[in-house]
Design a protein around this nucleic acid. Structure first.
Length: 268
DNA sequence: ATGGCTAACAACGTTAGA
């Protein structure tokens, strides 16, 4: 079966329920992974998604901030919410879906933002972000990624030069420092992950998924960063059909500062 | 280098985002 997966840092699922519903109606992904749902599980709008035909919901919520969720038309198996760095933050959820004759393991990550100062000695949040990336690296072993897998989420790192509006000006800005980009590249390399967006868009072309709320005119200044990612294991690479960054969503009324990213996989 | 905006909440300032 073909498979469409999407990821979106929604920055409050309750506030933007209408936008998520509109996204599901228009783009019809099989599975949508959300980050920053900013609610406890009991506040998640289950009924609204069921009414849209998304009957399989897995929520790893947290009060006020963080939180991830899976919204699916396909049944979900083996839901696992992993804690990282010894904290009980809700920053990860793994699910398995049946696909054709096989199974695909899907991971949804919300990597820590890391605060302002890119120095782990003076900034605990940055230290946490680096430790989180290190733990992703040690946990996502070859054994973990030997089965067909997809990894999505707000990884809060823009790894390539053209993943930010100015490589030179952002080298000391959290999200694009070498400490972060080198770690993310190591995570990718260990699992032989394929960066789905860069599979289709050459590295010399600019590609963003996030634009700050603080720009007067986000499109005109276009000071974006590519923080939201979809990776697939090598066995799924031949099935990659296309990738879509739903840039228009950045102009929707009261939208998130991140836009959805969609990957379409061909039939097995 | 700075400033700019948005959201949640034992909420009208603080913390977090990035």
């Amino acid at each position: 079966m073909p498979l469409t997966v999407a990821t979106w840092n929604i920055n409050s699922v309750r506030l933007r329920l209408g936008l998520v519903a509109e996204f599901l109606r228009r783009f019809k992904p099989d599975v949508l992974f959300l980050q920053e749902i900013k609610t406890l599980d009991e506040g998640f709008p289950y009924a609204a998604f069921r009414e849209l035909g998304y009957r399989h919901l897995a929520v790893n919520g947290q009060k006020g901030y963080h939180g991830v969720a899976t919204i699916s038309r396909k049944r979900l198996f083996d839901v696992d919410n992993r804690g990282f760095c010894g904290k009980d933050d809700s920053r990860h959820q793994a699910v398995t879906i049946k696909d054709g004759g096989g199974e695909i393991r899907l991971h949804n990550f919300y990597v820590p933002a890391g605060g302002d100062e890119p120095d782990p000695v003076v900034n605990d949040k940055f230290a946490h972000k680096l430790a989180f990336l290190d733990e992703m690296h040690s946990w996502l072993t070859a054994e973990e990624t030997s089965r067909p897998s997809v990894l999505v989420g707000d990884l809060n790192v823009a790894p390539l030069e053209n993943d930010v509006w100015s490589h030179r000006q952002l080298l000391r800005v959290v999200s694009h420092t070498p400490a972060e980009t080198e770690r993310l590249v190591k995570v990718m390399a260990r699992g032989s992950w394929v960066d789905a967006a860069r599979h289709f868009v050459p590295a010399d072309q600019r590609l963003y998924t996030w634009w700050s709320y603080r720009n007067r005119d986000w499109a005109a200044s276009n000071r974006g960063r590519r923080l939201d990612h979809i990776w697939v294991t090598p066995s799924l690479r031949p099935r990659l059909k296309n990738i879509e960054i739903v840039r228009e969503a950045r102009d929707w009324t009261r939208t998130s500062d991140h836009v959805p990213v969609i990957a379409r996989l061909a039939t097995t």
